[in-house]
């Protein structure tokens, strides 16, 4: 058959040998500006640190109110998620994320942000196939791999713990 022999690359019939691509990639890399690493790192550290300090303060408060260490941690997680969700709804968390980057994505408030942001975004498509179906499109991988990891750890502890 003719088609088998002629290398009909459907995706890039038009292009360009690999070395042309490499050469072009070099041109691009030369022009691409670097992100402001130091500024980003400082912003991420300070905002991320502030969120963690806030959580620690909440743990201390719950402990003083007489909760056990375990319960104080759980209550704090609930509180932080509430805060992340609330700030997303008020339209503040996206500005915070723009400033702090990973500093506000990594803490659990960031997890709340991506779920609530997705839910808000898809409200106009209805509560079933919009909000409910789409709210985990970004947070989904965190849940899936988080649950798998916890199950694996449980198995390890069960047999070797």
């Amino acid at each position: 058959m003719v088609y088998k022999n002629s290398r009909l690359d459907s995706t890039r019939a038009q292009s360009s040998q690999p070395n042309q691509e490499q050469e072009y990639q070099k041109m691009v890399n030369k022009l691409k500006p670097n992100p402001p690493y130091l500024r980003n790192a400082l912003a991420a550290f300070s905002v991320g640190g502030f969120i963690c300090a806030l959580a620690q303060a909440s743990i201390n408060l719950f402990l003083q109110l007489g909760l056990t260490t375990h319960d104080a941690g759980t209550a704090t997680v609930v509180l932080m998620i509430l805060m992340g969700a609330l700030l997303t709804g008020l339209g503040i968390y996206d500005d915070l994320g723009k400033f702090a980057g990973a500093g506000s994505i990594i803490p659990i408030t960031g997890f709340a942000n991506v779920i609530v942001a997705s839910a808000l975004e898809w409200k106009r498509e209805g509560y079933i196939f919009g909000v409910a179906a789409k709210m985990f499109t970004i947070a989904g991988p965190v849940l899936v791999y988080g649950i798998i990891t916890s199950a694996l750890i449980a198995i390890i502890i069960l047999f070797w713990g």
Binding site: G91, L96, N113, S118, I138
Partner: peptide, 13 residues
């Protein structure tokens, strides 16, 4: 890309 209210940094490019 992402939902409007999601907090993230857009790359310089």
């Amino acid at each position: 890309r992402f939902p409007r209210e999601m907090g993230h940094q857009r790359p310089v490019t």
